[in-house]
């Protein structure tokens, strides 16, 4: 039964404002795209159920606001994340430069047990814009950065055209699965009657 059980994955999407985090999520979850830009306020939550390698996953997607004024949400939002998606706009160099900050910020706030191997995914979004003519971040450059950070998987996406969105999220699920901790045996102590007296007197709140 354990192997058949559903898994819930907490996925955090980070990146500068306007790189298309919400659009990617909407394309993935709702298969919809809107050209209108509406800034996310605080955070937005979506869920999507996916089947992958015979297992069912629920992705709990935390779409965060890119604006700095929302960064105070901090620890609480990042706590217990199973995967972190870093998004940049291939047409805006600054959004790519920020990836490093986003990654470090995440590792500080979430403080995962094994930061070296925490599953990230990098998405270079908006590859459709202007037929690729306004592009400033090359695939090569992005991949080089990903390689330097422990071979983070990289995808070129277009939320508008739905390009690679499905593949990217599938990779997220696969990554999280790979990172699944060994089934731990849960074995609390049994009461030692002699000790119990002490514990009780100290632990009694009423």
């Amino acid at each position: 039964m354990a192997s058949r059980r559903r898994m819930l994955l907490k996925v955090i999407i980070l990146g500068d404002s306007g790189v298309g985090k919400t659009s990617l999520m909407n394309q993935y979850v709702n298969r919809k795209f809107s050209n209108q830009y509406k800034a996310t306020i605080g955070a937005d939550f979506l869920t999507k159920e996916v089947q992958f390698e015979d297992r069912l996953f629920t992705l709990q997607i935390w779409d965060t606001a890119g604006q700095e004024r929302f960064q105070s949400l901090g620890v609480a939002f990042y706590r217990g994340a199973d995967c972190c998606v870093l998004v940049h706009d291939v047409n805006v160099m600054k959004s790519f430069d920020s990836l490093n900050n986003w990654r470090e910020e995440f590792l500080i706030q979430a403080s995962p047990a094994d930061p070296e191997n925490f599953p990230f995914v990098v998405l270079g979004n908006k590859v459709d814009v202007d037929g690729g003519n306004s592009r400033v971040v090359s695939e090569k450059k992005a991949k080089a950065w990903c390689a330097s950070k422990g071979n983070i998987p990289y995808f070129e996406t277009s939320a508008k055209e739905g390009l690679n969105v499905e593949a990217a999220f599938e990779c997220i699920a696969r990554n999280a699965l790979k990172n699944e901790p060994e089934e731990e045996i849960y074995l609390p102590d049994t009461i030692d009657v002699a000790n119990a007296r002490q514990q009780k007197s100290s632990g009694c709140e009423c």
Partner: peptide
């Protein structure tokens, strides 16, 4: 971390977004 454990009504996994909202408010 906002992961659902129990809900009286409804499927916990389908309520993952709602659960996240509750965690966000508390945090």
């Amino acid at each position: 971390s906002g992961k659902p454990i129990y809900s009286r009504y409804g499927d916990e996994h389908k309520l993952a977004g709602f659960s996240a909202t509750l965690q966000a408010i508390i945090s």
